[in-house]
Design a protein around this nucleic acid. Sequence first.
DNA 1: ACGCGCTTGTGAACGGTTGCACAAAGTCGT
DNA 2: ACGACTTTGTGCAACCGTTCACAAGCGCGT
Lengths: 230, 230
Amino acid sequence: MSAQASGPAADVPRARRAEVPEATVARLPVYLRALHALAETGRTTVSSEALASAAGVGSAKLRKDLSHLGSYGTRGVGYEVQELVFHISGALGLGQRWSVVLVGVGHLGQALAGYGGFDDRGFRIAALLDADAARVGDVVAGMPIRSLDELDEVVREEDVSIGVIATPAEAAQDVCDRLVGAGVRSILNFAPTVLQVPDGVDVRRVDLSNELQILSFHEHRKATLAEVSA
Amino acid sequence: MSAQASGPAADVPRARRAEVPEATVARLPVYLRALHALAETGRTTVSSEALASAAGVGSAKLRKDLSHLGSYGTRGVGYEVQELVFHISGALGLGQRWSVVLVGVGHLGQALAGYGGFDDRGFRIAALLDADAARVGDVVAGMPIRSLDELDEVVREEDVSIGVIATPAEAAQDVCDRLVGAGVRSILNFAPTVLQVPDGVDVRRVDLSNELQILSFHEHRKATLAEVSA
DNA sequence: ACGCGCTTGTGAACGGTTGCACAAAGTCGT
DNA sequence: ACGACTTTGTGCAACCGTTCACAAGCGCGT
């Protein structure tokens, strides 16, 4: 976004990168998980129809999504599971291990720390940090909790590129600022606040209450419709 | 915008309200939270500009979103905070208290059970359920854990309309089926699986690993771009 | 009372996403 | 070897969502 194509489009090595659409990127992890599940059942190939159904999307959408990565299917047969896993992982940048720092070790933080999905895929928790001095030193999920003051040090030494915020809402913006100050440019925020960040920093929010309220809207709508037809 | 409904639009009972777009619905909770935060600082009115910035969106988008609910602003002044809270809450169906059943009381389940955001807004945890008999009877966040077998009973007696799944992935589909069987039509799924449900049932997924992978994609892209320009 | 400045609400243009429908391309059985 | 069958990859059209730009409306100061 910052370094736009300066004059000649020759800076791009091979223009094979047709810029994967954001909506597609958001679905790739779902496909990847479905593929892993299929692999465990022993399947070696899948049709777009079968994979789409396992991922909860339409088959045309799936095929179009995959076509943005390249042409890795075989007509008349389908996709080879392992090959697809490889290519999707590559597109998502999971070839390398990303170091993650987790800030805030309450119940949610512990749930995240204990979550198996980290090590399996390409993520490694570099450190658990908490502002509460009484908690520092406790061991959670096999790791000692360290002080929030060690943030810069951790980010530098462990080459952390992703920060996860699982603090109370009041602390989130401050922690965010510290993360950005330390050089972290990707943040996953579980605190119920909208974080203000400079350009070039990506933030993704996960908010339980939001999701419940969206469900509430649909329940409400269903209930109102039912009332009308009654 | 209401007057010129020439002919057909006026007598269609079902299409009474102009159907709030899904993308807008997803943002309403964010606005609501920002408004509550503003209310606590003593503000009684906000401009679309100020509220938009607090919510992390553009002001035009905010105004268009709000316009789907009605015309509740005052030109030259802005929106009255309390009034907007009232109308957004109404649109989201938060006027009534929804009963929620939480299945799976591991670390994540405990984090959710202890989350303040439930009681504050219009949600009430009707029961905590877990399949592990050894856990049944334990008290978490002031509530006793009950057996998963009591699901039907709980849903019926407590008029539960929303189910939250915080179990391991393996158990999620089974729990989902039970919830649907008991009559629950809105499900919030924290387990890393895509649930298969019949039509008429809404499912929202929250998946930590997905979010991390999306961040990974962007980090990867940034890193690749930086490499090229170097 | 009246114009001035501010802010909302919205029509219209734009860009991205979805779904359809089908040609291209492969496999399998005979 | 070949035709029937299957499934991918994609052009196209409809749809949805975002952004721009501005007229309409409101309060305030004079």
